[in-house]
Design a protein around this nucleic acid. Structure first.
Lengths: 123, 123, 123, 123
DNA sequence: GTGGTCTAGACCACG
DNA sequence: GTGGTCTAGACCACG
């Protein structure tokens, strides 16, 4: 899986990596149990500090997406805990996006189409 | 329109205000041509620095949501430019939200229902 | 509130600070809404790096014990979320401690007395 | 006695095994004088490195819980030294757990009930 | 070899 | 002035 950093983005690097890995798991590009690159390898590949990648892995681990193993490195969790609900933060953010899209004249159908596309992983 | 600041949020205050105004315009709570409170009045009402509100208004003006008028202060624009497209940033953010919701076991229908709700403004 | 670091402990420094602040909040030494020292001040006082204190504050924030404010620094949360349950991790740890105490010949009453003492904050 | 490793835990494997054996002795599942599996047998059973089990046994021996015998392998000690006191480390850890439970809204009685349960071994 | 922790030092956005 | 992020570099325990 290729990680791309947008250096001009306001989103911190560790968060950009985190987001891409979460999306990779959701789309199926990263399978359950699959090994992630080591902290050092990923840092070298992207050209950033190991601390930054470490922060990402720590976060993903806290969120229950991956597990870190002293022997094997980081791996995607087999069973990801399912709360069944959308966080208030994400709801709020979704509402903001929908509002902006609506004001830009984007039809409702196009938003729904995007949701379907992202949900079903036909990226 | 009542602006509520979530002091626990990581979203900067000026951005929280901006988002609520944009959502207010989209939902119709703020009509085209409607006058916004002055920078001072809003700052006083929320209990924050005027500089913060000023930053919000500047941003809204740059984005084309409001116009400022020497005499009347800030007003919601009559015609908001309609690009008809969702920004890449928002698309990416939407994809992240959908991915997280999917991994949390939220059914696709619930996401679509939320989009409809936010789009149609039946909040 | 005085923070004491045991440099010979296996517990990471950021975790030692975190634990002491949590215990301070529980005992009432740190009141709700009370201001914590700034990252820099605490780092200087303890004689460690600001990054380490920053990690502590980040963790306390994630756990819902404190809030950080760009203007005012860190403050103890007014309302701390109450799950009403003990985490599995803490249960397991409690069981380990009780087992070791029992094997050392510590009577049950003494353990209960300690729990009462810590719970009621008569430290 | 069955040893279970939690691969998601931050507690090192050798420590997880050590803790479970100590709890097994305390609960009576492991009787005084009872033979423990050989390092190799246990390592094979759990599917880990023999070095890790070896580290566990060394620790248990140092702590006075077991004794190793050239002929018979490792056995639970007949008389486990009874200091009659709880270590400062465990006291501190207990205080942390009680503090967190209290802040989570767990009533004192529930903590005491857990202590009783673990002490009396009615797990 | 792996992730985890820590330092010294720097720059940034927010308010 | 505040917390947040990041780097370069180092050392550590675990396995």
């Amino acid at each position: 899986m290729v990680i791309r950093i947008d250096e001009y983005s306001d989103v911190p690097i560790y968060m950009q990596i985190r987001n891409q890995i979460v999306m990779g798991i959701s789309s199926g590009e990263l399978k359950a149990g699959e090994q992630l690159p080591t902290v050092r390898a990923l840092a070298l590949e992207i050209g950033i500090n190991t601390m930054t990648v470490s922060k990402t892995y720590q976060m993903l681990k806290n969120e229950g997406y991956i597990m870190t193993d002293r022997k094997n490195g980081a791996r995607v969790r087999q069973m990801i805990e399912q709360s069944g609900v959308i966080s208030d933060e994400n709801k709020n953010e979704l509402r903001r996006i929908v509002s902006e899209a609506r004001l830009s004249g984007v039809p409702r159908e196009e938003l729904v189409k995007l949701v379907d596309e992202y949900y079903l992983g036909n990226t």
